[in-house]
Structure formats: structure tokens, C-alpha cells
Write a protein that binds this DNA or RNA. Structure first.
Lengths: 206, 206
DNA sequence: ATATATTATGAATTATCATTCATTATAAGC
DNA sequence: GCTTATAATGAATGATAATTCATAATATAT
């Protein structure tokens, strides 16, 4: 029950989408507050007024973007996780997918990382009701996997599985930040092995 | 050659400092752009005009704050690292100090984390010339320690020491983020052991 | 081809703030 | 206490940027 759109409607969606893509790049570069609607208009090659025909305002435009991308990314991660069999394999697949998806959605990752602590995220309905559940959904699959791995004797049992996931997420984000601060020179894609090795057995020599 | 200030000068410094402390809380809460000068004035119990007698503008006020706090924090971390003897001890001390200092300077940590990817940081002289060197100074002490540890056979030699430091920094920041997103309920101070255990030997069971 | 409906446009309007500065209050010197 | 210097004040100014809307352009229907 999706395809019930007229051609007009589809064209409208396409225009919307084009604007969101242009906006994404500017938001990633300058953040929400320093991005002007005129900026977005110029880059999407529409007039300001046209943006207001297609979105009810700057904030709503931004929210649409966040919502679409969050859904895309979480769907793609979940699809990857679905295919894994054991806990350790899931972690490996997660790290691999994170690198691939973050590279694919670089602009969104950048704007998200920039604003995740801001009140546009933390205090917003969209965040609480839509984005956070998606994100937590992924995280709790990881927690479950770690927990299962603990039962099976794969993962250590002296650290809370939730903490292990925080560590995994933080550790990988460390590389993400290093990359975002230096997108052109930091070889993010090559760090998969370092991340997994470190996750598996830490820093100490054997 | 410091104490050459008249009482007037000292009082001026004190007023400046009080304003910076009020500003810090608001900047941490709302970020630079959504913080108004009137906000800062109201919270510091001065009039707007008075802020402009003491600082040349909003940006300069913000920069003073960043500079002061960065110097304080890096001085305190360095003092801790100075006292350590072996590489592993340095890592332990670093994690411990990070928890203590981040708790002590919570507001600053919050505003810094919020804006570290913004262009106010990345493209600014203050950042490039003052803050980044301080931060990199600490990080390179850690890299040196890891490198020494590798020679001594303490740390593994199959991950680049720089990557190990990125992992350490990311891993600990993971807990910082979890805490900043939920300052009242996440028991950040209790996570020292998890962080260190994970750093030392990763997630796998022995 | 003409009339009608839909969509795009950007100049004008409005709102929000940073900054200034003429005025008032406070402190210092005599 | 009176005069002068120093500091504080907040209403007025100016700049920037979100939003609106009357008009122009384009598409659709007849």
C-alpha cells in the first residue's frame, strides 16, 4: 500500500528529496544555526519561497532529513545484523557495516555527530519518539549478542554487557572522530582490523 | 612576574571570571549560537553593557572561556601524568584523571564535546594555535608511553600506537557521552574499572 | 488556443540578537 | 561634602536571517 502516488506527488517528493540532499551537505558543514535558508535555496537551485512550499520551515526540513537518514541507516545496519550467526560474528559485521555506512552517509554522520548533544536532539519529540528508539534498537541487539556471548563463554563476564557495548561504540567512534576531523587524510576504511583486534583483546601484549 | 595587579585590576578580573562561569553553564546547555548575550547578562547579574566593558564581544568572551579551561585542564592532566612511572601506570592514571577532571569541569566538557566538530573550533586561530597543541601534547605523551610499552613488551605490537591511543580516547569518550546524555542517572565515576579492564584485555573471555 | 490551476519566485516584512552609547550610579581623591 | 573619574546600565541601533505573499511562470484541461 505504498505506490498510490500520482505523478505530481512523485515529482513533489523528488523535489523535496533534492532539497534535502543539498541541505544535508550544508548542515554538515556549518551546523543548523549557521546554515541559512538562502544557502539551502541557492545550493538546491530553488528560490526561498519554493522551499517554503515544500517544507513548513527550516526546522521541519531539518527534521525530515534526520528522520529519513536515521531510518535508512538503521534499516541497513539491521539488515546486516540479521545475517549474522554468532555473537562475535555480529560484532565483526557491525564494525564493518559501521565503516561502510558511515562512509556512505558521511554528511549525515557529520551533522549527527555535531549535534547529538545539542538540545535540538535531546529535547525533541522527533528524537525521543523516532530516532532514539531506532538507535537503541541497534544497540540493544548488540547488548543481547554480548550477553549471549557471555553465556557461551565467548565474552568475559566481569564487565557489564552494556558497558562492553558502550566501549565498542566509543572505540569505533574514536576512529570516526579522527576521520571527521581530517576527512581527507585519515584512512578510516583501513582501521577495521585495529578496531576489531582492540575490541577482542585490548592493548596488552599476549 | 605575575602579582603586579592593583586592587582595581584584581576586581576586574574577578568580575570577568564570574561572567565566564555564568556563561559556561549557558553555553554548555544551549551551545554558542543559541546562547544570547542577554542570557549571559541575566545569569551573571550584570547588564549587557557591562559585559561589553569587560569583553570585546560574545565571541571573545567565549574564546577566553575555552582558553582558560583548556589550559587548566591540560595543566592538571599533565601534572598527573608527570607523576607516573611506567606506561601502564600512565594509562591507568590518565583514565582516573579523565573521570575526575571531566566531572570537575562538567560544563566545559559538555560545551567542548558539543562544538569540537564545529567550525568555531576547527577553523579558528585559537584552536589551531592554542587549544590543539595542548590537546595534542597530552595525546602524544600517551602515544609515547604506548610506544615505550611496546618496546618493553607490555603492549601489543600489531596495532599502531597511535591507533591504540585513538581507541583509548574513544573508548573513554564513549562513557563520557553516555554520561553527558544522561548526567543524572549514568554512574560515570563508577566506570573506571570497566574502562581500564577493557583497555587492557578487550572483550573476549580468557 | 484559451482559460484555469498549480508551482516558483524573490522582494518586502518581521523577528531575533549583537553591539553601541548617552545617561545614571558608584567610588576615589581632596 | 563636593568634584572628578570609573563603572554600570539598558534602551536604541543595525545586521542578519526566517518567513510571507503578491506576482510571474508553467503546466493542465477543455
Amino acid at each position: 500500500m505504498e505506490k498510490k502516488l500520482t505523478r505530481k506527488e512523485r515529482e513533489k517528493q523528488r523535489r523535496r528529496f533534492d532539497i534535502l540532499e543539498a541541505a544535508e551537505i550544508i548542515f554538515a558543514e556549518k551546523g543548523f544555526d549557521r546554515t541559512t535558508v538562502e544557502d539551502i535555496a541557492a545550493h538546491s537551485e530553488f528560490a526561498v519561497g519554493t522551499l517554503y512550499n515544500l517544507f513548513s520551515g527550516k526546522e521541519q526540513l531539518y527534521n525530515s532529513l534526520i528522520e529519513i537518514r536515521s531510518k535508512q541507516m538503521s534499516a541497513e545496519v539491521n539488515a546486516v545484523l540479521d545475517k549474522t550467526k554468532g555473537p562475535l560474528e555480529m560484532v565483526r559485521a557491525y564494525v564493518n557495516a559501521k565503516i561502510k555506512l558511515f562512509t556512505k552517509y558521511q554528511y549525515f554522520v557529520c551533522l549527527y555527530s555535531r549535534e547529538r548533544l545539542g538540545d535540538r536532539f535531546i529535547n525533541h519529540d522527533l528524537w525521543r519518539e523516532t530516532i532514539a528508539p531506532l538507535y537503541n534498537g541497534v544497540l540493544s541487539r548488540l547488548v543481547d549478542a554480548i550477553r549471549a556471548g557471555v553465556s557461551q563463554g565467548i565474552f568475559r563476564n566481569d564487565i557489564d554487557p552494556e558497558d562492553i557495548v558502550i566501549a565498542l561504540e566509543g572505540l569505533t567512534d574514536g576512529f570516526v572522530y579522527a576521520w571527521l576531523e581530517n576527512p581527507d587524510t585519515f584512512p578510516f576504511e583501513e582501521k577495521e582490523q585495529s578496531m576489531i583486534d582492540f575490541f577482542i583483546s585490548g592493548a596488552l601484549a599476549k
